[in-house]
């Protein structure tokens, strides 16, 4: 086994519970490579997750790991980070986890610009419960709870978090695994709230119902239907229609929450008001 896996994985917990061809494993190895590149101290790093397939990530990686309740990962992580800002905090969430039941926590973590890096694995479906539609299931796609096709509109996750105040927003895919590592590294370096949407394949609960049976077919679809944001900038709108934009979509600076709180403490203790 590769040295990076030996170092960042709890190898005694493997193999993981994810289905054959599930993209979660690819995202998690991209994360491990990012940790190596960042040179993080594992003792000083906390990895938090919510509920669903994505949430099992915390079982397998060797950090201070916290597997929380459905949708609440960011609220727990906010407590950890604010109480102990010296800790590095990463959060794994799924699409339903982060934008449906956890939607409120997501937008407020963005608004506060708290120094947490969120990796949202978007497989367009609730996988763990067997394939129900999520707020990121594309309109028209099928799910067990949308047997005639999804009639709701889906969120654009990156636009959502950008609008809510996240200071680093990127989108990658499991096909673009190496770039995903780069995005996680860049997100971690951002002093503020970073969101990396990792578009992923769920062959069992999504692909099967949507005419993409094999993991390979799904991962190749990601290759063919994405376009880098830099390349897209040079193309005509009709050339990028229907494509998923990937790459670093937004990066800006804003006051970070825990640093602001430390300043508040200094002000109060210094006799200010």
């Amino acid at each position: 086994m590769d040295r990076i896996y030996e170092k960042y994985f709890r190898t005694d917990r493997l193999p993981h519970i994810w289905c054959p061809g599930c993209g979660n494993g690819i995202v998690l190895s991209a994360f491990a490579r990012a940790m190596e590149e960042l040179g993080v101290d594992q003792d000083q790093t906390v990895v938090v997750s919510g509920i669903g397939c994505s949430s099992r990530a915390t079982t397998y990686v060797d950090f201070n790991t916290l597997h929380t309740t459905h949708g609440r990962a960011l609220a727990f992580a906010t407590g950890v980070k604010l109480a102990e800002p010296r800790l590095n905090v990463f959060v794994f969430m799924g699409d339903g986890d982060s934008t449906a039941i956890g939607g409120n926590h997501l937008i407020h973590a963005c608004r506060r610009n708290i120094d947490i890096t969120a990796i949202i694995i978007n497989n367009n479906i609730y996988g763990m419960t067997g394939g129900q539609y999520s707020p990121l299931t594309p309109t028209g796609k099928k799910a067990t709870t949308a047997p005639y096709g999804m009639i709701e509109r889906n969120f654009d996750l990156c636009e959502l978090v950008k609008g809510a105040g996240a200071t680093f927003v990127a989108r990658g895919t499991t096909y673009h695994a190496k770039q995903l590592t780069d995005m996680i590294v860049a997100g971690a370096k951002n002093k503020g709230f970073s969101v990396i949407e990792a578009v992923s394949q769920c062959p069992v609960s999504f692909g099967r119902r949507n005419k993409m049976r094999s993991p390979l077919e799904m991962i190749q679809w990601l290759k063919e239907n994405t376009i880098n944001v830099k390349a897209a900038a040079k193309l005509k709108p009709e050339d990028i229609k229907g494509k998923i934009l990937i790459g670093e979509l937004y990066n800006t600076e804003a006051p970070e929450y825990t640093a602001e709180y430390d300043r508040l403490i200094a002000r109060v203790q210094g006799g200010g008001k």
């Binding site: 086994m1 590769d2 896996y5 994985f9 493997l14 193999p15 993981h16 994810w18 054959p20 061809g21 599930c22 993209g23 979660n24 494993g25 690819i26 190895s29 991209a30 499991t174 096909y175 695994a177 190496k178 993991p215 991962i219």
Partner: peptide, 11 residues
């Protein structure tokens, strides 16, 4: 192959 193996099987 190594980058895309979901189960960390390939070296």
């Amino acid at each position: 192959c190594e980058l895309h193996c979901p189960d960390y099987c390939i070296e």
